[in-house]
């Protein structure tokens, strides 16, 4: 039998409350497989405030400290301070928040924690809208997407702005390590989390986690769509270590972005013109990323 490429230990148990096909439990599962038992996780308001189950039950085999929506960065700073004060050396302190809790309401506390150089791992599981509250747009909702607060309607009120680039925002903080991962690539996911755990100071990992409910797609397509997101360069897989860029999943034969968009009901209202616009944007961002990798090659 072939040797498993990912650890067989489980720190996230089955029987959770996520929707069918949800990418978020996969993100937590891989994260904890990489970090192991000596890990404490802090989670704000998000789908993961519900997924572990109702008090007094939990589906995690590590300590979990819930916190308020906007303060994951502060909560993990406090946890690290307490752990340091108690002289404990071998514990991973992890913040685990959604895209709204990271890029919108939680960006201040995250920025503070990263600027202070806290020894923490922050993972954003990005499903591109406020899914727990019922698919409202966030600043990580992509251009063109329908959500309940960017409905299509007669006036084409769908999302008109491009999503914030959280990794770049973190790089601008001169963070020691920032990376993107996808639930479609568990080996890469786990390798990056392990690498992050070995680097002192703040680490930011942005995990692509499709939401079948909010993206209006079949639940069995989660991995397929996540792969397509990377293969079309909508969501490139890369890391930035002390400013040096490295694309960890090279895309050789770029798939058309339209293939990715057409699999999801949230983009079903888009015409050829908008698809073309999105393709151009994705191409430009990809070129920029290649150039950054090239520019920082010798660093």
């Amino acid at each position: 039998m072939a040797k498993p490429t990912i650890p067989t230990e489980e720190y996230m148990l089955s029987g959770h409350m996520a929707c069918l096909g949800c990418g978020a439990p996969l993100a937590m599962r891989y994260l904890l497989k990489a970090l192991g038992k000596r890990t404490v996780v802090s989670i704000p308001a998000c789908c993961w405030a519900v997924i572990p189950g109702v008090f007094p039950y939990t589906n995690l085999k590590v300590p979990l400290v819930y916190t308020a929506f906007e303060v994951t960065g502060a909560s993990i700073s406090g946890l690290r301070a307490a752990i340091d004060a108690r002289g404990i050396k071998d514990v991973n302190v992890v913040g685990f928040a959604g895209d709204g809790g990271t890029a919108d309401i939680g960006i201040q506390a995250l920025s503070g924690a990263v600027e202070r150089g806290e020894n923490i791992i922050y993972m954003c599981y990005d499903n591109e809208a406020y899914m727990n509250t019922g698919i409202q747009r966030s600043s990580l909702t992509p251009f063109g997407a329908w959500t309940t607060t960017t409905p299509v309607g007669k006036t084409k009120f769908w999302q008109k702005t491009q999503k914030k680039n959280m990794v770049e925002i973190m790089v601008a903080h001169r963070i020691p390590y920032a990376a993107t991962v996808s639930v479609a690539y568990p080996e890469d996911f786990i390798n990056k989390v392990r690498k992050a755990a070995g680097i002192p100071g703040p680490k930011y990992i942005h995990a692509f986690a499709p939401c079948p409910t909010g993206w209006r797609m079949p639940p069995e397509k989660t991995i397929e769509i996540a792969r397509l997101a990377t293969d079309s360069c909508v969501f490139p897989i890369y890391e930035v270590e002390y400013g040096k860029y490295k694309i960890t999943r090279k895309v050789v034969n770029k798939k058309p972005v339209a293939d990715y968009l057409k699999m999801q009901g949230r983009f079903s209202h888009l015409g050829e013109e908008e698809m073309k616009q999105i393709q151009e944007y994705v191409d430009r961002e990809w070129e920029l990323l290649l150039k950054k990798e090239e520019f920082t090659k010798e660093w």
């Binding site: 400290v65 502060a74 506390a109 503070g112 202070r116």
Partner: peptide
């Protein structure tokens, strides 16, 4: 001999201390 967390807001100050207290520290 205390850890001094120079946060970016009062809201974060208290959030940090709640988690620090749950982590077993006097805050």
């Amino acid at each position: 001999n205390a850890r001094f967390v120079n946060v970016e807001s009062e809201h974060s100050a208290l959030a940090a201390l709640i988690s620090a207290s749950l982590g077993g520290a006097r805050t």
